[in-house]
Amino acid sequence: MSRSAILPNRGLADRLSALFWRHPRVLLLLLITPPLLWLGVVYLGSLGALLLQSFYSIDEFSGVVVEEFTLKTYGELFRAANMDIILRTLTMSASVTLASAVIGFPVAYFAARFARGRWKAVFYLGIMLPLWSSYLVKVYAWKLILAKEGIITWAADSVGLGFLLDAVLALPGVGGNSLSTSFIGTWIVFVYVWLPYMILPMQASLERVPVSMLEASSDLGATLGQTFRTVILPLAMPGVIAGSIFTFSLTMGDYIIPQIVGTSARFIGQAVYQLQGTAGNIPLAAAFAVVPILIMLVYLSLAKRGGAFDAL
């Protein structure tokens, strides 16, 4: 019975462990300080700087940034050309989000409910694979696919559906000379590029819906449609909202895709890029950059009011 009840101290690691055991807050503090500093100083700091810039204005005659508080720059957002950009971006983001949700839901549902083992791996691979290749390569590839002399036109013509494509392209506002130079084209590429960001969170939230919940609904007399509307959708909503935050904000901030595929009409991201770069109009660029933030805040509060997070 010579063994001691207390093991000997083996050095620094043991002393540190003991310190953290006696004062758990010390460890917490150590762990959380660097990320908090990052978040607080770098992230919020730059956001603050951005916000500050948006309250400056550019002098009409000299083009100099006037560092005095004014709402004039925000007023400029309401000029017709700028409102166009905002509404165009908003419409695009909303329709991309909607399409991603509609297309992504069955995929996510299948993966969450039925895919097992190897099929699950195939699913993840299939969803993630497009994310591995370069974003630019994908967009350029789509430009070729959608081109006037590209594969879609060719395919449509060879099965005699060329008139359908022409009819789509003749649609006012969204049509154009070819898919690659139309809003529809931009929309298709956006949906393709951001779809995984919608599917993955939806799949995660659908996976958390117990099967018994669906059985209960059916057991109580609900049809498949009723179960979908009253149980699956509300319970998957946090995932749909999370996914839509991705697709919505990614679309709203993107400035590459509309530059390569589309009508050249500007989106917010492009406007910010161009205004801060070429034009040196930092205040207006900052004001434009604030728009997506505001839209997201409005969107989230609407989603919250709509009960999207009730099942969390």
């Binding site: 050309a81 406007a271 070429t278 109009n281």
Partner: peptide
Amino acid sequence: SQCESQGECVPYYRWVSDYIGVIGG
């Protein structure tokens, strides 16, 4: 804005925002 040939010209930052408008229709 202060150009040689006619004293006051439309400066570049206006070119930028207006051309954005033109392309936007």
